[in-house]
């Protein structure tokens, strides 16, 4: 019988080793698997490469993981915001690496990995410093740069509803990178607000089919980054 359910966030992320590459879903403050990230802080894996659009806010979630010195390198499109202090300080001190990837290229590199496409060509970055040292080719008289797929060992995902097969639905713009990352990681770990019985999600409503999901843990009433920051919270 297929049962991907885990009883706790701690058990779901227990085997993430030092040096792993970890995709983390979310954009800004929505769709972030805060409980899974905090479990990873408790677990303590170090030397991680983390893929997320941003670098977290305040001193919770991804920013707390970075602040706990568990991240060696960030791959992201926008590593700063009005509320991000942790990454900028470490970056300026030379204590964390950054690979800057345009947002659409980041999404497509992740999608390509999930689809088994090792590279693709795009005009994004042509004529800019971000295209330096990249292979280019002409198609229909226009120049394109080659971009490689982007894979991960693990993905940490937040969704709204899941069944035990791993079929997922999301809520509004909390979807963002989550479905793509489900496809691109060797082991995809999902926290769901609601775990329902097989058959309780209308097949027409499934956004991520369960084939892309390995582990599910129910986290009812998940915390939200903006609320934690407004309350002045930090983790651990």
């Amino acid at each position: 019988m297929i049962d991907k359910e885990y009883s706790s966030v701690a058990s779901a992320i227990a085997d993430i080793p030092d040096g792993a590459t970890v995709m983390i879903g979310g954009f800004g403050a929505s769709g972030n698997p805060i409980e899974l990230i905090h479990a990873l802080i408790d677990q303590g894996a170090k030397d991680l490469t983390v893929i997320n659009n941003n670098t977290g806010n305040g001193e919770v979630g991804l920013a707390a993981l970075i602040g706990n010195h568990q991240v060696r390198k960030m791959i992201c499109s926008f590593p700063r915001s009005s509320q991000s202090r942790v990454f900028p300080e470490l970056y300026k001190a030379g204590k964390i690496e950054l690979e800057l990837v345009p947002q659409g290229t980041l999404a497509e590199r992740i999608r390509a990995a999930g689809a088994g496409i090792p590279a693709f060509f795009t005009p994004t970055t042509v004529g800019t410093i971000l295209a330096e040292d990249k292979e280019t080719r002409q198609f229909d008289g226009r120049t394109f740069v080659m971009e490689p797929w982007l894979k991960a060992d693990f993905a940490l995902i937040k969704c709204e509803t899941a069944d035990r097969l791993g079929n997922l639905t999301f809520n509004k713009t909390a979807r963002n990178f989550n479905p793509l990352m489900c496809m691109a990681a060797t082991t995809t770990i999902v926290q769901t607000g609601k775990l329902v019985a097989r058959g309780d999600i209308d097949p027409e409503r499934v956004i991520t089919p369960g084939i892309f999901v390995n582990r599910i843990v129910e986290v009812s009433d998940p915390v939200h980054e903006d609320i934690l920051i407004a309350e002045g919270r930090s983790y651990p």
Partner: peptide, 18 residues
């Protein structure tokens, strides 16, 4: 391009090309 600035591009390069 200032030295020490943290580069952040977001979706700008995708938008202008697409």
């Amino acid at each position: 391009g200032a030295p020490g600035a943290i580069p952040a591009v977001g979706g700008a390069m995708d938008l202008v090309q697409g």
